[in-house]
Design a protein around this nucleic acid. Structure first.
Lengths: 336, 336
DNA sequence: TTGTAGGCGTTATCAG
DNA sequence: CTGATAACGCCTACAA
């Protein structure tokens, strides 16, 4: 089956290629009967417009890039669903890029993004630098960062859809202060350091405002295959804090298992909060307390924001940082 | 920053665009000093070749499409990692498509794949029909299906990288027959019916060969929000089979929780096997027995196969169905 | 309402 | 070794 082009359709329908182009693009100047004739030819030949050629002619690809860390892939599923659904609505194609330490450095990804001439890009706030964002900016590629908050650098062509994790941690900490508890640990997740930094900052702020110092940031190196392995070791010499906060489900579950096996009970000896919700937190006994974060919506909002930026919608000019709300969802691993 | 083109570079380096094109494409006919001059101009101007224009000129986009069900996204993470890593090695870009009932029907996805003029496509064996694959075939788009086995239709331009789930279930069943156990249930997972069919077929074959009939295919409709909700209800009137097989972790864990709460113990009252491994199966107590399926490798192999098909490698002409091996990994929910 | 011709940014083929 | 020039497939003034 020969690649069939607009010329073939034109010949078949006995019109010029311009006319074919018009019916493809829903121009309303073409007469009804010729439109029909063209559409028939299109169907008969199975013609599909070449998006590449269209892209060249229009300097517009109607595709946007999404880039995220390979490791966070499974965790970002819902955000991605939101992104994809909205992209679909606006008829955008998605170029998908993953970054990982070894094979695909962020720099290469940026390179291919620029070459692809995508109209815009969605960046997950994991592992890119200020510098890399500036490159995107230099090439005038509208960008929105989704996940955690980005610093307010002068770059105003980048949007941001985020959860204020700093505030979340601040509030969480104060809630325990009110109950007279200040023995709080935060377990590091190396997969998303920017979020960790913000959680840590929020706790530090709360402690500082209360004339105390936050010291229990639990970090462990990668010689431990998992947080479970680490915590099992850890609990041989430490007892858990009254409150343990983790970012992701696997760390929370690891904490529960390791703690339980070390003879501690949740929530009596230690309360446990996992910041990011997942269905697995309902599968443990007791169920793990968490926050409801509107993940799907974050994706949807981010993509919608990007599409607006792409059409130069005035309404987003100075209004492209969107703070998404969250709410605390106590379950069985906390006493509140 | 004006979009800078090959002409700008040519002028800057005082050569023709043809020469610039040559140095971009590593042609070895260009003299050393002019190459240097051109490269300098490229760097100075920040020029990046326009992949769209290249695509038009070459009738080759060096991008491949990946399409998977939106719902299975988190579960396919490892396969995707394998796909992405190999794609990166071969410098292929990835167009990412998701299908879901409401918003994006497979038909639309196919449409956009064809328009995009991608070089090839990777299909997850979830929710597409024979017919849709034939469309891809009509447009001569090399395709490889990853996941479970596809039926041997006449279409030889489609590769397949798969786990033989039929055989897996057959062996599993026979292993229990040898122990004198034939009270075996298989819990349906609606998200991947093609895999379910194959598991079911394998069990049926084993039963039939032993003069018995397999009857305990447990299916439940979507009025139940989760398999946990269903099983909790189910165990009020049924006792679990001696052996329960599920496809995915969440079903296995649901079975454990619902069973335990109904007064049954695993593995004494019921042994439990989850076909697809995940880290969460190690987080339960007891740990869930499972199969090791080389997910990352499946992705890597699939993408490698596709790249070979794209360069018309003879070695894959009649050798594009690749059966991946798996192995049983008993843990604490089984007695073997 | 329709057709003609130039342009989008590259690559490839020929001359020189 | 380098430079014109014709594709690649489509869109869009501009003319008719």
């Amino acid at each position: 089956m020969k690649r069939i082009t607009i010329y073939d359709v034109a010949k078949e329908a006995d019109v010029s290629l311009a006319t074919v182009s018009r019916v493809i693009n829903d121009s309303n100047v073409v007469r009804e009967d010729t439109r029909l004739r063209v559409q028939e030819a299109i169907k008969k030949l199975g013609y599909k417009p070449n998006a590449i050629a269209q892209g060249l002619a229009l300097s517009k690809t109607t595709t946007v890039s999404i880039v995220m860390s390979e490791k966070l892939f499974a965790y970002n599923a819902k955000i991605l669903n939101g992104l994809m659904d909205v992209a679909k609505i606006y008829n955008y194609n998605i170029m998908f890029h993953t970054t990982s330490k070894g094979i695909s450095r962020m720099q290469d990804v940026i390179e291919s993004i620029i070459k692809s001439r995508v109209d815009g890009v969605i960046l997950f706030n994991d592992n890119f630098s200020q510098e890399e964002m500036e490159v995107l900016n230099d090439y005038q590629i509208p960008t929105v960062v989704v996940g955690s908050r980005i610093e307010d650098n002068g770059i105003e062509t980048v949007g941001n859809v985020y959860i204020n994790f700093e505030q979340l941690a601040y509030e969480l900490t104060n809630r325990y202060f009110e109950r007279g508890i200040d023995d709080i640990s935060l377990v590091e997740d190396k997969l998303n350091m920017s979020t960790m930094q913000q959680l840590k900052a929020g706790m530090e702020r709360a402690f500082k405002e209360n004339g105390k110092e936050f010291t229990k940031y639990i970090s462990y190196d990668e010689t431990y295959k998992s947080s479970y392995a680490f915590l099992t070791e850890y609990f041989k010499t430490h007892k858990p804090s009254k409150v343990v906060v983790t970012l992701r489900d696997s760390q929370a579950i690891a904490m529960m298992n390791a703690g339980t096996e070390a003879g501690y009970t949740v929530p009596d000896d230690a309360e446990l909060i996992c910041v990011l919700n997942s269905k697995y937190l309902m599968m443990t006994r007791p169920n793990v307390s968490t926050y409801n974060v509107p993940e799907y919506d974050m994706g949807a909002v981010a993509m919608r924001l990007l599409t607006k930026m792409l059409v130069n919608d005035e309404s987003v000019k100075n209004n492209n940082k969107i703070n998404m709300s969250y709410n605390y969802m106590p379950r069985q691993t906390t006493k509140d």
